[in-house]
């Protein structure tokens, strides 16, 4: 093989490997580790069976951006909602309906408000983690989005949204200040 060809091969290889490297670098994390310090969105014990999240116990946290947004909403019981970009909801799902203090959650699902994100559906990035230390994956398919669209009409949990207001895909809206 003569040298110009060699150079071409090397060049092509390096371009390809660069592409691969740049694709791998694209792993961001949206869920911080200290979310358990945040306010919770439900005072209820959530351990009744529920489609989509199983029948273990569930703990839902909302970051301060979301809580302070709700603080500012007048007439919180009936107003349409629109969480500000950056709002983060993290839901821990345990295997057991009555987990012990040492149990780790089986799964973590989260919603991050970012209408410009390439994977957003309905303005939210839908995040799933198979355990606290697992990698985040984003679901831009129908699954999470379709079911959570039911939060924008009457549904049979918590406050039930009987008025059918727009709740911005969130089922459990806490009272002002959170829990």
């Amino acid at each position: 093989m003569n040298s110009p060809r060699k150079v071409m091969v090397v060049l092509l290889c390096s371009i390809f490997s660069l592409g691969i490297v740049s694709c791998q670098q694209d792993s961001e994390t949206l869920v911080p580790s200290d979310y358990s310090q945040w306010k919770m969105t439900s005072s209820e014990l959530l351990n009744f069976p529920i489609p989509g999240h199983g029948n273990g116990e569930r703990l839902i946290y909302m970051n301060d951006l979301g809580i302070s947004y709700l603080d500012r909403v007048s007439n919180l019981e009936s107003a349409d909602l629109g969480f500000p970009p950056g709002t983060l909801l993290v839901k821990e799902i345990f295997a057991s309906p009555n987990p012990s203090v040492d149990d780790e959650p089986r799964m973590i699902t989260a919603m991050y408000k970012d209408p410009d994100h390439p994977f957003q559906r309905g303005g939210w990035v839908w995040i799933i983690k198979n355990g606290p230390n697992a990698q985040e994956s984003y679901l831009d398919e129908e699954f999470c989005f379709t079911c959570h669209n039911s939060a924008n009409q009457a549904f049979p949990y918590g406050q039930q949204n009987l008025a059918g207001r727009f709740q911005d895909f969130v089922f459990y809206i806490p009272l002002q200040g959170g829990y």
Partner: peptide
């Protein structure tokens, strides 16, 4: 297309399955 057991469906169909 998977047909999801939406919260509204739960009333009739029960909550023990997602689809």
């Amino acid at each position: 297309k998977p047909l999801i057991n939406l919260p509204q469906c739960v009333v009739c169909h029960g909550a023990d399955h997602t689809l």
